[in-house]
């Protein structure tokens, strides 16, 4: 069974963290993963840096740019993850834009993911229709899940289609925005979370974008199976460093 499904079967509210591979320092990937697992984090999204991440806000873009300056590449990331499954048991997801994957070769990319033990992918600029027509079979062959985003503007019909094509979870973008921290959720977000909950989708939902503290984590997981923190964690890493990760996790989930 895919580790992502296993995790959801445990039944608890999930906390997932995102960071850009190669940031703050090139070789931080494995130390960050170890700290996250030791702190009780349920799942991790490892960001494959891209020069033009157009769905992301300034924090993730800057960390991505810094990671590239540090020398991060697709091949480098795979080599860092080569032995990762000897130490890390929680689900690992690669999140990145489609162009670097195309240049690496989609088939080779999927194969390398399978070899190092990646459970799934999130590719914001690969729309569900194109995935379904051209890549789903390949991803399945390599045991890779592909997670899709939905937003408050996504139509019900499209959400049902995404639900049908998805495995793992549906990534519920909290508001019409790029990534980046907000401190609270308004009633529009809460309404949207409830509306999705009422749709009784087959695939579990996880909220991302705008989760930065215990309050937003609680609010998000009241209506979904889990939440993802990105920008706020990246800022923490930049200012406090890898060693202090447990403090950050404790501040989110006591």
């Amino acid at each position: 069974m895919n580790r992502i499904d296993q995790k959801f079967k445990e039944g608890k509210k999930l906390l997932s963290l995102y960071f850009s591979a190669g940031h703050p320092n090139l070789e931080d990937t494995v130390p960050i993963l170890k700290q996250l697992q030791a702190s009780g984090v349920d799942m991790v999204e490892i960001g494959l840096p891209f020069s033009d991440p157009l769905a992301d806000g300034p924090t993730i873009q800057e960390s991505s740019t810094q990671a590239l300056r540090n020398g991060m590449t697709t091949e480098k990331l795979f080599s860092q993850l080569e032995e990762i499954r000897q130490e890390i048991q929680i689900p690992l997801i690669l999140m990145g834009y489609f162009n670097p994957m195309m240049q690496f070769g989609i088939e080779k990319f999927c194969q390398r993911c399978e070899e190092v033990g990646i459970d799934g992918l999130i590719i914001p600029d690969l729309p569900v229709d194109i995935y379904h027509e051209q890549y789903q079979t390949l991803f399945n062959q390599h045991g890779l899940y592909n997670m899709f985003l939905i937003t408050p503007q996504t139509s019900e019909e499209r959400i049902h289609f995404i639900d049908k094509v998805s495995n793992g979870f549906i990534y519920m973008v909290s508001s019409a925005s790029v990534t980046g921290a907000k401190n609270t959720f308004g009633s529009a977000q809460t309404d949207y979370f409830q509306r999705i909950k009422k749709m009784k989708l087959n695939t579990p939902t996880v909220v991302g974008f705008g989760i930065s503290n215990a309050e937003t984590y609680e609010a998000a997981t009241a209506h979904a199976r889990g939440a993802i923190i990105g920008s706020a964690f990246i800022k923490f890493l930049e200012h406090q460093g890898v060693e202090r990760i447990p403090e950050f996790i404790k501040s989110i989930r006591k």
Binding site: S51, D52, Q103
Partner: peptide, 19 residues
């Protein structure tokens, strides 16, 4: 061949796919 600004087209990029 690659993706830039939402379109599959020809673009200048590094071997690693950075624009």
């Amino acid at each position: 061949e690659g993706i830039i600004h939402g379109s599959k087209t020809l673009l200048m990029q590094t071997p690693d796919g950075q624009i």
